[in-house]
Simulated scan of single mutants.
Amino acid sequence: MSHLTFIVPVRHPDNSPDWSLQCQFLQATARSIAAQADPGWRGIVVANEGSDLPELPEGFSVEWVTFKPNPAYSIAAHGKEVARDAFRLDKGRRVLAGMLAARDSGHFMIVDDDDFVSNTLSGFVKANTDAPGWFIDTGYGWTEDTDYCVRMQGYSGVCGSSLIIRGDLYDLPARFEDASEDYIKEWLGSHVRIKHILRAAGHPLVPLPFDGGVYRVGHRNSHSNSGSLWQYFFLNPKYLVRPGRLWRNIKGLRKLSDDLKREFFGGAPSAPAMGVHETLS
Rank of each mutant, 00 (worst) to 15 (best):
E63S: 12
W64T: 05
R199Q: 15
R31G: 15
K80W: 12
V65G: 01
P71R: 09
G252C: 09
M109E: 02
C149P: 11
L169I: 05
A86Q: 06
M109V: 01
S162A: 09
S51V: 03
G106F: 06
F176R: 05
W41D: 02
I7A: 03
H196R: 15
W187F: 14
F116A: 06
S228T: 14
S161M: 03
D38P: 02
F67H: 15
W230M: 13
A28H: 00
E278C: 11
R93W: 14
G79K: 01
V10T: 13
F233C: 12
L260E: 00
T29M: 11
L246T: 15
D171F: 01
Y183R: 04
K195L: 15
W19M: 10
A97H: 09
G252R: 04
M152E: 09
I165Y: 03
K126G: 15
S180C: 14
F135N: 03
T279L: 14
D258G: 08
S61C: 13
H203K: 02
D259L: 14
D178R: 00
S222N: 10
F265V: 11
E55G: 06
F6G: 02
D258N: 12
G123A: 05
G59E: 11
Q24K: 06
H196G: 11
L246K: 07
G157R: 04
A83T: 02
R245A: 14
C159R: 00
A30H: 01
G59Y: 07
R94M: 06
V117S: 08
G167P: 03
A35Q: 04
C23I: 02
P243Q: 11
E278I: 13
R254L: 13
D114H: 03
S51P: 01
A37C: 08
I110H: 02
G50K: 04
I33F: 08
G141R: 01
Y239P: 07
F124T: 03
H203Q: 08
E55A: 13
N225G: 15
S118G: 00
K80T: 12
S61Q: 07
K126R: 14
C159L: 02
I250Q: 10
T143P: 09
F108C: 09
S118K: 05
A34C: 03
I7R: 04
P207W: 13
T143V: 07
C159W: 02
D182S: 07
G141I: 01
W64R: 11
A101R: 07
P269G: 14
S122C: 15
N249K: 04
V214T: 06
V192I: 14
R166E: 00
G213M: 02
S122L: 09
R248I: 04
V214W: 02
D18Y: 00
